[in-house]
Design a protein around this nucleic acid. Sequence first.
DNA 1: ATCTATTTTTAGTTTTGTCTAAATTTAATT
DNA 2: AATTAAATTTAGACAAAACTAAAAATAGAT
Lengths: 231, 231
Amino acid sequence: MLNKNVFLEKYFLMTRSEENYLKTIFHLGGGDSKSITTNAIAEQMETKPSSVTDMAKKLSEKGLVDYVRYQGISLTDAGVKTALSIIRKHRLWEVFLVEKLDFTWDEVHEVAEQLEHIKSEKLIDKIDELLDFPKYDPHGDPIPTKDGKFQERDEKLLSEMPINSKGICVGVKDSSVPFLKFLDKNKIALGNTITIMDKEDFDHSLRIRMEGKEMRISHQIASNLYVKKND
Amino acid sequence: MLNKNVFLEKYFLMTRSEENYLKTIFHLGGGDSKSITTNAIAEQMETKPSSVTDMAKKLSEKGLVDYVRYQGISLTDAGVKTALSIIRKHRLWEVFLVEKLDFTWDEVHEVAEQLEHIKSEKLIDKIDELLDFPKYDPHGDPIPTKDGKFQERDEKLLSEMPINSKGICVGVKDSSVPFLKFLDKNKIALGNTITIMDKEDFDHSLRIRMEGKEMRISHQIASNLYVKKND
DNA sequence: ATCTATTTTTAGTTTTGTCTAAATTTAATT
DNA sequence: AATTAAATTTAGACAAAACTAAAAATAGAT
Ligand SMILES: [Mn+2]
Ligand SMILES: [Mn+2]
Ligand SMILES: [Mn+2]
Ligand SMILES: [Mn+2]
């Protein structure tokens, strides 16, 4: 009993802050044993580099990151596993909010940021089951499986597609509220089939056909939309 | 914008600990402007009296409790309102877990203790709607409405019912895991109709008929079951 | 190789929420 | 009214997670 508690404490009792650091390091690429800089993490988390250093020591102590002073931070296997479990929870909750509670895709992230920290394996497995084991979240991001596997998709940025090619819109790179609202306003939704009609050399804008209608979209929009090749 | 933030900070940004104190004070009866003692709160929360004193000052500062040194603590109207909103969330989540995710009634409390602190008015309103606005939680406890109203029920402890009277089992007073598991094992469930056949003077145990079967239950069991009078 | 700008860490504080130990107030008993 | 026991508060400390300011290390440019 005492032994079990020691075990739980060391390996499972993560604070919300620790979980957020692991998630951020993973998103910055630190899962591939690539070293992430203190400043990069601080900027992403809107905190100070000195706070990142403090946390690096703590996470290193717990065996979740590899950290050498001045040399940056990367996730250990245990760190990757933990990060993926948080990301899995985040994305499943986002699907839940959209599918079961009629949230819009620009409303879910903020709430999922809270829900991802709820500690109950049974809860998230049941949510997964209720949603019929979705593979992607409302923004097209893949949902890691229970054992931490990622199902990557063969996708490209719309801006990189050649003229006359077709693709199905499957995800957004920028999932900020303003961008998502812009897409809604212009009836650009995941699942839509898009044909690249023409590209403008001057500003790199695209003329596309989507759901029967033709429109022009800027390079900034096109470079934040993922499409799956479809010909 | 600055004004709005000040407003939010003062009235809505509650920490998890503050919310738990308010909930506990309410459950101990401090909602009826009855003064609750420092020790009672400390015991209930498994913390030390000195910690309660510290929090009493903080909550008093925020206008959520009335606190006079050495004289005990009671909730202000704002405190009651906040406590009820936490209790509402707790109980709605418990219903959700049972109704939508097949949790058993002895599993839900622990998870609800976490979920009750999620900050999103829309989320809990949508959960309420998804559940079709339930009036009671899985343990028979009433769910406060959005505007903080309680629908009390005319209920009595089974141990206080007269011989030959009938009642429908509508709630548990003790909702500890062992008690709930005991009830499951003995097929005693909310909704069952119970007839009091006889009472034993010696140990105050009851002979009851329930769902066609007769059984004997101890006074301790009978004094932890609520029934609705059903003449 | 040296200097300099940038990055990163350290040292010392702050806030929140907890604790222990000591002091104080209240309540109960003689 | 004085004494004693119990309840409560204060004072001082600690851990977590953040901050600021200063020191140290690294990397880039001469
Ligand atoms: Mn998100
Ligand atoms: Mn997402
Ligand atoms: Mn409960
Ligand atoms: Mn309950």
